[in-house]
């Protein structure tokens, strides 16, 4: 097992105070929110690390910090030995950035409604200068087929697709820059059960085929069970428990984890037997 991503003492504090003049006039102090509190973790190559927690636990902020969408207040994130995100404004090398991609929660907001699917999927290829125009269009066709769409879909617009198909387009876009690490932020929580199964299976398939490493953000423990090798549980910005999936489900160490497990609505265990249809 080799470590691909290392998160070192990452904290993120948001300043939600009113504007300066307002603060001075009303003599209010600054208001700060600690969204992520000194989190350290290590993600193994080729595995899925799931971050679990309720809304407001800071899991999405941590994910955005790891990919570099928002800089950490302190701490740093390393990808294969290279800096991926840090508090100091050191530029991240494009060669590193190219290897890290993200899949978002909303199948509607994550695709630009004015762009054709082909252009959406081709954007990372263009942005990183990965191939010329003709090769790019062939690559787009390839990517669309890889995620279970047709190459003819490249000419259509996002609104012509269902939620599940849009999530496939998102996945194709994420794969376009040939990444090794993909952060999936609740990628199926807006989808129906049968569509969710299709998308989760696709993600697993891609992991097997391409050796991808995932950071999987979700609030759904049942989804975690089928996706994750390692699990981190977040509560109020802090990582309260981190274990291998089997260990965590067998013997949760933290009371909060236990509470999450207890309150997860459990479809009767007999249902899993009918899984072998």
């Amino acid at each position: 097992m080799t470590e691909l991503v290392r998160v070192d003492n990452v904290s993120k504090v948001f300043d939600i105070s009113p504007p300066l003049w307002h603060r001075v006039l009303t003599r209010q102090p600054k208001r700060l929110v600690q969204a992520v509190d000194n989190v350290s973790m290590s993600i193994e190559a080729g595995q899925t690390y799931a971050l679990v927690g309720e809304s407001g636990s800071g899991k999405s902020t941590l994910a955005r910090t790891i990919v570099g969408l928002t800089p950490p207040t302190s701490g740093s994130v390393w990808f294969d030995g290279a800096l991926l995100a840090g508090a100091t404004h050191k530029a991240v090398a494009p060669s590193v950035r190219r290897q890290v991609q993200m899949i978002f929660q909303s199948p509607y907001a994550s695709l630009n409604p004015r762009w054709r699917v082909g252009d959406i999927v081709a954007e990372p290829i263009r942005a990183f200068g990965l191939s010329d125009r003709r090769q790019a269009s062939r690559r787009v066709d390839e990517l669309l087929e890889q995620v279970g769409l047709a190459s003819s879909d490249a000419a259509r617009f996002p609104h012509e697709f269902s939620g599940g198909q849009r999530q496939r387009i998102s996945i194709a876009r994420a794969l376009a820059s040939e990444p090794r690490f993909i952060v999936c932020d609740e990628p199926t929580s807006a989808l129906d059960v049968s569509v969710q199964a299709q998308v989760l299976n696709l993600l697993k398939q891609l992991q097997r085929d391409l050796g991808l490493t995932y950071l999987f953000i979700t609030h759904d423990l049942a989804v975690v069970r089928t996706m994750a090798h390692q699990i981190g549980v977040m509560k109020q910005g802090a990582l309260v428990e981190a274990q291998s999936a089997d260990a965590l489900f067998a013997s949760p160490q933290h009371a909060y984890t236990q509470m999450l497990l207890d309150s997860a609505p459990i479809v009767s265990p007999k249902a899993s037997r009918s899984g072998q249809l």
Binding site: V67, A109, P113, A127
Partner: peptide, 25 residues
Amino acid sequence: KEYVQAAQLLGLSRLQIMRRHILPN
């Protein structure tokens, strides 16, 4: 919206994002 974040991840400049992603919308 998340499509803007996806563009930011690619390292596009703010002007590029404004012109190519937000302007059409």
